[in-house]
Amino acid sequence: MVSRCSHPQPDLLMLDVSDLACRRGERLLFSGLSFQVPAETLLHVRGRNGSGKTTLLRALCGLLRADAGSIRWRGETIRDLAEDYNRDLLYFGHLNGIKADLTGLENLRIASTLDQDPADADAIFAALSRIGLEGFEDLPTRMLSQGQKKRVALARLILSKAPLWILDEPFTALDVDAVDLLQQLIAEQVARGGSVILTTHQEVPLTSGAIQRLTLGEASDPVSSESTESETRH
């Protein structure tokens, strides 16, 4: 079902999900979900509100234990990898994950130190200025607008070297410029051999690599793939 010029080599196959099922309370959100996310791929998860997009992403992060099925990262289950998997992962959830009482600079410094890849002040300033927050580096993020807070959180993407990004609705509350920039960042991540899994209602144009689409809440063949060059559906 995947028609790309060359099939992904096994070592490039980064995330392998098989027969995944999740329930919230009594309700079964999805079951028998299998898909792969090779390198240089963007997986776009779609679905109605409440179809389990966030649950799926949290399960893929390991924040939530799936009820059935397995998630493998480069051949090993993420439960076995535990912290090693987390090191390869960048998760961006509904909550920005930044401290309102700390400045943008401090937030990013702490985040990068905890990711075991401390960024120096220059790199953080550069990241903040690229995300359009020049001059706001030393303000507590409490003073920033909703969209600016989101930008501080997204600056982590610029500093990150993680091969896998999992982004939950990253485009909400962003203005047109920031949306463009984020699309650019995602395209860069895919171009340098990383993978991105995201939920959004927007289209993300890619300059290289492949887009896969996964639609939750529909019974038959939820995974469809297309190559960016030909935009053909299967």
């Binding site: 987390n86 992962l89 998760y91 959830g93 509904h94 909550l95 994950g97 990711d115 075991q116």
Partner: peptide, 18 residues
């Protein structure tokens, strides 16, 4: 509340140390 705990869980550091 602000999601930083989630991020702490995903840092790739031993959580007990954090």
């Amino acid at each position: 509340d602000d999601g930083t705990l989630e991020q702490l869980l995903l840092t790739g550091q031993p959580l007990a140390l954090l």
